[in-house]
Amino acid sequence: MIEVENLTKYYGNIPAIEDITFTAEKGEILGFLGPNGAGKTTTMRILSCFMPATRGTARVAGYDVFKNSMEVRKRIGYQPENVPIYRDMSVSAYLNFVAQVRGIDRRERKTKIGKAMDECGITGVSGKLIGKLSKGYRQRVGIAQALVHDPEVLILDEPTIGLDPRQIHGMRDLIKNLGGQRTIILSTHILPEVSMTCQRVVIINEGRLIAVDTPDNLMARLQKGTKILAEIEGPPDDIMKELKGVSGVTNIEKKDAKSDNTFTYLIDSTIDRDIRKELFAAVSKNGWLLTEIRQIDMSLEDIFLKLVTEEKD
């Protein structure tokens, strides 16, 4: 549905994105993850035909965003960053305007607008001026506007920024419901959001692609660098020395004390294998007491940070 190949954009001489390549299948929800200034908005602006790329190609539903911009624009719904909408229009007047320029037949307009308002939960505020709505409601109007013509592709730039937790929850459910029939690309810096709503994640940093994968695969891929948390009763210095000698351990850190003689330790291992047995053996050999040992699952947050920092090394 969406094919992006070696997409590069320079602002003057400064690259905003370089050689970004990814695809999104029909019906997929693709998360675009990256810290501030990573190039998420830039990529989305190219995909939505707002500006052309310096190099590379992007196709939506088989149409090139530059050569066949009109065909692409017909097929997408786009919510730009910060939801720019006409503040002096009422919600219904605005959606009516959008429906008109989206080429929706006069007879269908009312039902389609009604459906979009329903989906986004803004039917109750349809008569209000957009400028007087709360941020969350404005955000919903932005999505309703992107939905009104029932597009094949939805491009949403930070759809949950600035919402309260309950609204974020609602927005995620909304996006999940919208997926399935439609291809959705959404950007965010909020990591749990990606694992909750997206089937696949594109991680970019400083304009470069770092990873494209499912959230599960990303976690699995990085699981090999597992952290293990162990609570051991015994002399800390000896324990640290002993455990460092276990094969596979790269780092060990003493954390908080449970009691005088009991501490928790955070153990990093590189090898793609479970080293808990070896650790247990090493502890019991010395007559210390292992009260707890478990693997810490890396959250997407850790993975993200790890990926972003690994790239720098």
Partner: peptide, 14 residues
């Protein structure tokens, strides 16, 4: 200024 130009230019209108 308000950024609505970004919407306007991405609508399928000439």
């Amino acid at each position: 200024k308000s950024g609505t130009i970004e919407m306007l230019m991405t609508f399928p209108i000439k």
